[in-house]
Amino acid sequence: MSAGLALEGVHTHIGRYHILQGVDLDAPGGLTTMLLGRNGAGKTTTLRTIMGLWRASKGRIALGDRALHSLAASDVARLGVGYAPETMAVFSDLTVKENLILGARQGPMDDRRLAWIFGFFPALRKFWLSRAGSLSGGQKQMLSIARAIVEPRELLLIDEPTKGLAPAIVGALIDCLKEIKATGVTILLVEQNFRVAAEVGDEVRVMDNGRVVHRGSMRDLAADQRLQMRLLGLSLDSHQ
């Protein structure tokens, strides 16, 4: 099973803004932890800080017994952390194949793993030699996630994978996330779509104003509408 992630008292400043104000967060190994919260709560900043794209000004981040907080993004990635950002950040000028080649940093892509990815993202197979820039939004999202998992990872950081996608594609993504989860990788997933969160998540952490304000199981949160209303200002029923 993959190692767990732990953040202790993490602060992040971006320019003069104090975004993360002492984040204490854990994502147990091998489970999918949902990171929920209102817009501007600090979810994306948390993922970027874990990834080393923004430097924590204070606090500790560890993957198992390895400290991440002082590492550059490239070194964090080399420890087996895959990242699919909110912007997808596919390389538009490169083909689907070339994007995945870059995702496979350790060497040539494994054919069996590629076949596994094609199993839930057949569009990537279809547009294998097409420019990533010519893909639809949903296909770009698939490519972004595929690039993050084209090699086995210890930890996956995925930021709002269903944002702006059609319901049919969201369904495919849910299946994909369940498949990835079944491999035992630790996943920290930011998601605004509560239905997706409820379907995929094992654990949940809710953020507000740069801090984690709730931790518990996703099942419990999904079953407690009053808690949903208090933490997120919504109820699961309104999303169904």
Partner: peptide, 10 residues
Amino acid sequence: ENREMVEALG
């Protein structure tokens, strides 16, 4: 195109 993402890939 995107230096940051290249870094994030290791």
